[in-house]
């Protein structure tokens, strides 16, 4: 059974059909990449799935349960975590407090141990007492991921996680993603990262699904090549 099943999602802003009848499934344990040019509807689709944007038509089921009308915070409680595109850690709180906020949401008994474990995972344990705003950009991205992880989600949505990272940081990020037990939905512009990590890829264009398949299938797909992979990646 699928972990997440979205059917016939529609979201129009004024006259713009940001998402126009999308079906979307996630299998348990897979790393699924969502690609498409700017304005293809990636952010809107993720917004609908995470609950930040209300669904206008269609349905979303998570683990067999209908979550279409559930507010964002309740979806997090169901096990859908979202790591922000633009780094949005709490800059004036300590690194520890940032992650502790996520850990205490899970009802953990030992807050300190849980928080330090999550920080250890991304290699930030030594910086726990720093203010989050004082971290380097790459470290802030890692902190953001640590916060997502600390929620112990069943589905982790990573919105452009490698944007602005150096090559070495991207490598350690890939290793980190491979080590995670959760299902992962990855919105990513860096094709090398996508091809490397994703088991399946969904290509969006103009609010619709253009293609779906394994990295090899997507690479070979003429429609996708024409629409997206053909030229240089417009957004990179």
């Amino acid at each position: 059974m699928s972990l997440l099943e979205a059917r016939g999602l529609i979201c129009h802003f004024g006259g713009v059909k940001a998402i126009d009848g999308v079906d979307f499934d996630l299998e348990p344990g897979e790393v699924h990449a969502l690609i498409g040019s700017n304005g293809a509807g990636k952010s809107t689709l993720v917004g609908l799935l995470s609950g930040r944007i209300p669904v206008q038509a269609g349905s979303i089921r998570f683990d067999g349960r209908d979550i279409t009308r559930l507010p964002a915070h309740a979806r997090v409680a169901c096990g859908i975590a979202y790591a922000f595109q633009i780094t949005s850690v709490f800059p004036r709180l300590s690194v520890f407090d940032n992650v502790a906020l996520a850990v205490q949401r899970t009802g953990a008994r030992d807050l300190r141990a849980g928080t330090m474990a999550a920080l250890d995972r991304v290699g930030l344990a030594a910086l726990a007492d720093r203010l989050a705003g004082a971290l380097s950009y790459g470290h802030q991205r890692l902190l953001e991921i640590a916060m997502g992880l600390a929620l112990a989600p069943r589905l982790l949505i990573l919105d452009e996680p490698t944007q602005g990272l150096a090559a070495a940081e991207i490598d350690s990020f890939k290793a980190l993603v491979r080590s995670l037990p959760a299902t992962i939905l990855l919105i990513e512009h860096n094709m090398e990262v996508v091809m490397d990590l994703a088991g399946r890829i969904t290509v969006l264009g103009n609010g619709r699904v253009l293609a779906r398949g394994t990295p090899a299938e997507i690479r070979a797909n003429p429609v996708v090549q024409a629409a997206y992979l053909g030229g240089r990646d417009a957004d990179a």
Binding site: S50, R52, A72, H73, V76, A77, A81, Y82, F84, S88, V89, F90, P91, R92, L93, D97, A100, L101, A102, Q104, R105, M147, L151
Partner: peptide, 17 residues
């Protein structure tokens, strides 16, 4: 801690559940 988080960034706090 949650109250301070709401003050600092309510949207982010909501997305932490």
């Amino acid at each position: 801690r949650v109250l301070v988080a709401v003050r600092e960034n309510e949207e982010r706090t909501r997305m932490l559940g």
